[in-house]
């Protein structure tokens, strides 16, 4: 049975492709893995392409725009690292390229969250779980309308 205690920040470094993903974020770029064989985008990043099993891929920039696909507003943190942040929204953004990405909102009160709302990426440093520059999202200013509601 694995440890039942909280993991310390020094143990958090990625064992997968996360370090590369976040290295791009630290440079202010949202890049996803894209398969060079079948051209499918892939998030979360994987070792092989889930569509064609190719291992030939590139970290390719995405536009960073998308729609709010769904969310939850956390009123009681289930992990001590986030207790000071409540209430906070965990959002799932469907990027224009197709993949969905788990993130959070910047400059958006929780009452303003709306399904299909257009959003765009911003980068924000966080030390809540490791010390990383995270891709977060904000409402697209005067942007195109989402399916459900007009731009605010």
């Amino acid at each position: 049975m694995a440890s039942l205690t909280a993991v310390g920040a020094d143990e958090i470094g990625s064992k997968g492709t996360g370090d590369e993903f976040y290295a791009w974020c630290a440079r202010g770029e949202l890049r996803l893995r894209r398969c060079n064989a079948c051209r499918e985008w892939c998030h979360v990043p994987r070792v092989t392409c889930p569509d064609c099993a190719s291992t030939d891929w590139t970290w390719e920039p995405v536009k960073g725009t998308g729609r709010l696909y769904t969310w939850t507003v956390v009123h009681r943190a289930m992990h001590p690292a986030f207790m000071g942040d409540v209430p906070y929204a965990v959002v799932v953004v469907e990027l224009d390229e197709g993949p969905r990405i788990v993130s959070g909102m910047v400059d958006c009160p929780i009452e303003a969250l709306e399904m299909e709302m257009p959003v765009e990426v911003v980068f924000e440093r966080s030390d809540r779980w490791g010390d990383r520059v995270l891709p977060r999202f904000r409402r697209t200013a005067g942007g195109p309308s989402g399916k459900a509601k007009g731009a605010r």
């Binding site: 979360v44 986030f82 942040d85």
Partner: peptide
């Protein structure tokens, strides 16, 4: 609390937990 215990533990560690997406309820 330890994402290594989760299915796709590295995924949870890298892409869920940093945004406070840490528990089944969420």
């Amino acid at each position: 609390l330890d994402p290594a215990r989760l299915p796709g533990g590295v995924i949870a560690n890298d892409y869920y937990f940093p945004h406070g997406y840490t528990a089944p309820m969420q």
